[in-house]
Design a protein around this nucleic acid. Sequence first.
DNA 1: TTGTATGCGTTATCAA
DNA 2: TTGATAACGCATACAA
Lengths: 343, 343
Amino acid sequence: MKRKITLKDIAKELDVSISTVSKSLKNNPEIGEDTRQKVQAFAKLYNYKPNNIAVSLLNQRTKHIALIIPEITHDFFTTVLKGVEEVAHHKGYNVLVCVSNESFEKEVLSIEMFAQGGIVDGFIISLSKETQLKEDYKHLIEVENQGMPLVMIDRVTDKVISDKVIVDDMRGAYTGVSHFIERGCRRIALITTQDHISVGYLRKEGYKKALADHVLPVEEQLMVAIDQVDTAEDQIADLVNNQEFDAVLGVNEYFSVIAMKLLQEQGKRIPQDVAIIGFSDGKLLKYATPSITAVDQHGDEIGRAAAGMLIERLESSKQDENYRTTVIPTSLIERESTLGKQD
Amino acid sequence: MKRKITLKDIAKELDVSISTVSKSLKNNPEIGEDTRQKVQAFAKLYNYKPNNIAVSLLNQRTKHIALIIPEITHDFFTTVLKGVEEVAHHKGYNVLVCVSNESFEKEVLSIEMFAQGGIVDGFIISLSKETQLKEDYKHLIEVENQGMPLVMIDRVTDKVISDKVIVDDMRGAYTGVSHFIERGCRRIALITTQDHISVGYLRKEGYKKALADHVLPVEEQLMVAIDQVDTAEDQIADLVNNQEFDAVLGVNEYFSVIAMKLLQEQGKRIPQDVAIIGFSDGKLLKYATPSITAVDQHGDEIGRAAAGMLIERLESSKQDENYRTTVIPTSLIERESTLGKQD
DNA sequence: TTGTATGCGTTATCAA
DNA sequence: TTGATAACGCATACAA
């Protein structure tokens, strides 16, 4: 087991000083050509690489960023992670992942740990449901006070002033509903989350606006707000069994797929009897039978944008107080579940 | 923006030496009761936390581990990540994630970066397809030579001696095929990967063994080895269109779901005409219509086991050369796609 | 009971 | 052209 080689080792071996070695390796012109060559050759031979920890200690930066997501089993967050990782690695940063499991406590603990230990240089976070419910953002504000950059994504809040990257949720829902209407649907149901989930609320607003703009009534009984994951199926069944509608928009993959399954069990044909659209860029919608039209949120782009913003802020010396919000437009991926009425 | 507080700050403020502060905070009995109290109170007030980097430099360990996975859009790896993260955080470790994208080069580069910079203390890795094809494992052996623990999961190789956590792929496939046979299926197709993918190979072997044990012939034309992701659909269509079979086992979620879709388009009823089983613990199988029976690989357990083994090795001082391989049994989750023949 | 000194590996400043 | 030294923040052996 070879121990890792250090500057000191090289210095001793070549009988020069540590600083000479350091400078040589950095191609510092102070050092004579031949010494430099010699050192570099030796270093290469022994595969020298600077010890990151020492450099971190010196520079007071780790070149690590934390990504905190509420869930990993949503394809959306998975693609976000991929996007973040892509840009981060490209720029020489590493990504520490933390799944909050929708828990406020876990979110707070992770952030404190990462921030206080100086483990990461900055954060990308999507709020847990519990956090959005409690509306307690002290941990985030604290992070900012410590001078650590923070980029919020997707599930964000106005209560925290920071860079943000969000989905155009309202417009995404608006587009979906409009798509239904263009295809002749008139009674459009919505399966969304409780209002405290920011994205759920915005999607509902987009849904309502689309109806209003097309002079269609907003019917309360066609809108269901899912309380908890495990009651989703029952609540959706309730909608399906007791209401008549010819289209349904789900604010995530699960709601849409569950709705479709229940509708099919009832003998409804998709899309002839009921058209379906779901939010998210996941495989659940893509591989469903029939495949389901999706409001693509472009998780990868969100991840890339967030990582880009964060790193830019980390590397810019100026204390820029102009926080930006980048809105990533959604796009509608038309699939089988909305064909046919019209086409 | 409050700068982070250090031992030095506390020492100056309380007019004691740095080591007194350090010892006080560690409850070292050397220090007098009142000094200790005073220091601790002050530290608490200013929310002192030791600087992780400094501690890392001192101890020559970061308390970070790297998880290198080939893909993030497979639910299996996603659950692995979750399991790893769970145990790691519980034991005070952080997880750096790296997606190799099935690329040998990316895998090698990430490992070198993590290892040489002393960025992590150890590795959990699942090999990329390209690596398994090339059979070039120098980067992993190098890591071990440097004395860094390595735990391989799922896609492993005999060429590298290390701790391993694997799925019981052979038995998983065997169980699936047996399940078909018990339900009256006789012509069972297999959709697998190329042989160089270790898990694909093992699953094929399990499939063959099950057939043999039940005195059924192994028919080459019923086994298709997918070359690449983008040819999967064509290759599976070829099988579906040109062969007669009453059951099909896919070695991952995608293959099974695609097969089902193509079969349904052909007018086949699932499971009456063709029964289906897929590998993986993902939502694609669970939410399919009909839902698809799954060979659950328990990604979360694999992740937990791997993290456990890795951390154990990191924390045990003794240079134990007895590498272990933990085999996580699969379990069959019966769903609609294999009901009916018998029940 | 408290303080001083050293070292972890690196870089940067300044002296030779 | 090269080398000695300090500093990053902490822990510890040893001195007082």
